[in-house]
Write a protein that binds this DNA or RNA. Structure first.
Lengths: 108, 108
DNA sequence: TTGTTCCGTAAGCCATGTCTTACGGTAAGT
DNA sequence: ACTTACCGTAAGACATGGCTTACGGAACAA
């Protein structure tokens, strides 16, 4: 259930905004906080949650701390999602919408 | 930002358990509730949230109501995740871990 | 050493969301 | 008509989680 932490991390809108700020390259905490309507400690807490979830990685650069997206966490989430992406599920959906299985045996 | 609702829907553990119960085929509300440690109204509310998020679809079958996984919501989430799955991001991660860009210009 | 900049953490307030019980409504059977 | 089975919604109690301010530590410069 590692994807539980990952999904919870991406559920919050502000935290997702922090995550998306890192899409075009690594950034420090202050750089991200300046582009968001929340305080810097809030961004720091969000980055910690993203790190625990395996979505970002950090590195010390002097007194600054640079964060970047870690594709591993994204990959695990993708892999979990594929369980619900099969052809059988599409068939199930049609079965529910039509009210009958695709192949009918009798007709009342 | 349609994926916001989708991510929020999958963030809750109980709701995710409801979603996973539908992985091996459509089920009614009572059938799902019997296999979970929560009440039936709770399951009903979770299924409503999953429906709004585009993750499940429902159909009336007599007095029962059958729910099934809707691959569309899963697909949208996958598509959003692909933004953070590129090669450039992997390069960014290495840049952060190594402390230097792959190609160094000078050496102090 | 002093000062500055950058950051993480703790404590508290407050909003959000989940669960329960209670109720009403629809469909099928007797 | 009456009963049973199944479901959705409302209201309230309760826990969870995000945000802020305040504080302390680490690195670089003068």
């Amino acid at each position: 259930m590692a994807y539980g932490t990952t999904l919870a991390a991406l559920a919050d809108p502000t935290r997702r905004a922090v995550f998306e700020r890192l899409r075009d390259g690594p950034k420090s905490v202050g750089e991200v906080a300046r582009t968001l309507p929340v305080s810097r400690p809030a961004v720091s807490q969000h980055l910690k949650a993203l790190k625990v979830a395996g979505l970002v990685s950090d590195r010390a650069e002097g007194t600054r701390r640079v964060y970047a997206i870690d594709p591993q966490g994204v990959g695990e989430l993708r892999h979990w999602l594929d369980q619900f992406w099969g052809d059988a599920l599409t068939a199930f959906k049609h079965e529910v919408e039509l009210g009958e299985p695709p192949r009918r045996r009798k007709k009342p």
